[in-house]
């Protein structure tokens, strides 16, 4: 294809991507380097339904004039990155020198909002991903051995947790595990503990979110493994059987190696997707016990207590750095696959 033609074909798509994906990444970085102007205060007499008094108030005109002159705000360098609500450099170094053991240092670090979110995000990512691969593989093996008539409906039901809106899916589960809902009440009955509440305990909240994550993503892995199973050459399996390989050995030495590329594919996609875990925290109202990087950004932007664009920017840049690390193996793999094939 001629370069010119290619250019016109790709142009609309490229423009939207540049405007709304590439540009924001840059603007987020600039935003993260700024904080709002110092508010100008003045003394005024304020009268409410409960009487009058003198108090300091924001001088709206003067403050908005400042903002008008320099809409980005005050340049703050990497100050926002280093402050207590993000990387907390000075807090961490104090904790490092004052902590008698490494465990104490870790718990001090866990008390800081960014590291707390990072801890959950990483735990979630690295627990959900392998569990999804394993569960998906088991479901695929099991469904594959069902009679043909039942396969269709089973696949239909299996797709539901993945297709349904993440926020809605988490709400549905959340209502069931509510202590007044069916699962919550059943658990109270099983453990004979009427005060048992999954929401109250941080550990149980984490477990709940991870269970949700596996529930939501297992169908994805299942479908891909299931399709992969259809491509396992029957002759190889038959040959293995003739050689006297047991069922377990056939699964272990014939089917599994055949599916390794799929395992890698699912794991890489899942690592990236799980790293942005966000909706379940909103759905489960879990922010008291578990926050994620995406959740803090959302909270800074739309948490209802005003917007913190600098903070959101700083956390975004740090999140993008995290994604970049997870991306390296994906890019490497795609690069290798493509090198000989298309170009």
């Amino acid at each position: 294809m001629k370069n010119r033609t290619f250019f016109w074909f790709i142009l609309p798509s490229l423009v939207t991507m540049m405007l709304f994906i590439a540009l924001p990444i840059g603007s987020v970085f600039i935003q993260s380097l700024h904080i709002e102007h110092t508010t100008v205060l003045k003394e005024v007499k304020n009268c409410g339904p409960f009487g009058c008094k003198l108090e300091m108030q924001v001088d709206v005109d003067a403050t908005s004039q400042l903002k008008k002159d320099r809409p980005l705000g005050k340049f703050n360098g990497f100050g926002t990155y280093k402050n207590r609500n993000h990387l907390a450099v000075s807090e961490l170094s104090t904790a490092w020198t004052n902590s008698p053991t490494f465990g104490v240092f870790l718990s001090e670090a866990y008390n800081l909002p960014f590291y707390r979110a990072l801890a959950f995000t990483l735990t979630y990512t690295f627990l959900v991903t392998p569990l999804v691969v394993m569960l998906g593989f088991c479901i695929a093996l099991a469904v594959n051995s069902l009679p043909k008539r039942i396969k269709g409906p089973t696949i239909f039901v299996s797709l539901l947790p993945m297709i349904v809106t993440p926020l809605i899916g988490s709400l549905i589960l959340f209502w069931m595990i509510d202590s007044e809902g069916i699962l919550g009440a059943s658990l109270q009955w099983i453990f004979e503990d009427p005060s048992l509440s999954l929401k109250a305990s941080p550990t149980l909240t984490w477990a709940m979110l991870i269970v949700y994550g596996v529930w939501h993503s297992a169908p994805f892995a299942f479908i891909i493994f299931y399709a992969g199973l259809q491509t396992v050459p029957a002759e190889t399996i038959e040959a293995a059987m003739i050689d006297g390989a047991s069922r377990w050995e056939r699964t272990r030495y014939v089917i599994l190696p055949h599916l390794v590329p799929l395992i890698v594919f699912i794991a890489l996609i899942q690592l990236m997707d799980n790293f942005r875990v966000f909706e379940p925290i909103v759905g489960f109202s879990a922010q008291a016990s578990a926050t994620s990087l995406s959740w803090i950004i959302f909270n800074d932007l739309a948490g209802g207590e005003g917007s913190f664009f600098g903070s959101a920017g700083a956390t975004s840049v740090l999140t993008i750095l995290g994604v970049a690390v997870l991306l390296i193996p994906v890019l490497f793999r795609t690069w290798r696959d493509f090198k000989g094939k298309v170009v």
């Binding site: 904080i35 709002e36 508010t39 403050t63 705000g73 207590r84 807090e91 913190f308 903070s311």
Partner: peptide, 18 residues
């Protein structure tokens, strides 16, 4: 103490504290 530290960082960003 955590509340104070979190507030100080956020209020600085908002321009309420220097």
């Amino acid at each position: 103490m955590d509340v104070e530290a979190a507030y100080t960082a956020a209020a600085t960003e908002k321009g309420f504290l220097k």
